[in-house]
């Protein structure tokens, strides 16, 4: 069951992170809250796993990180690079295609 869920969720964190950070730069905790709000708590990732994903996307050149002081604390803010926006467009169109195909299949066979 766990493996099936992992397979289903494959690529979803990357897509969500890029989508939410494309709107504005955020730090990890802000991003975790944004994921929960945007998905109405339907997708509950362990919030800690956001960080390996963020670091990996940054290493791949899809995100940019910078330290910024806010409310007396220094935080690492992440934003999407131009390469990240292109990747987001690709992932989003792929996701829509897959979602539409699954939706069609769930709607039942269409007989001519």
């Amino acid at each position: 069951m766990g493996d099936a869920r992992a397979l289903l969720m494959s690529g979803v964190p990357e897509l969500l992170i890029l989508r939410l950070l494309a709107e504005r730069e955020m730090y990890g905790y802000e991003l975790a809250r944004a994921v929960r709000t945007a998905t109405h708590d339907a997708i509950s990732l362990g919030e800690g796993v956001l960080y390996p994903a963020l670091h990996s996307l940054e290493l791949g050149g899809l995100l940019r990180a910078r330290r910024r002081r806010a409310a007396g604390r220094t935080r690492v803010y992440y934003s999407v690079t131009a390469q990240g926006r292109r990747r987001l467009a690709f992932l989003a169109s792929r996701w829509r295609r897959i979602a539409a195909a699954v939706e069609t299949a769930l709607a039942g066979p269409q007989h001519a």
């Binding site: 990732l45 362990g46 919030e47 800690g48 796993v49 390996p52 994903a53 670091h55 990996s56």
Partner: peptide, 15 residues
């Protein structure tokens, strides 16, 4: 909320 240590380690080692 952060998730288990095992999940965190696995998610890092997967990269």
């Amino acid at each position: 909320r952060l998730g288990s240590e095992d999940v965190l380690v696995r998610s890092i080692l997967a990269r």
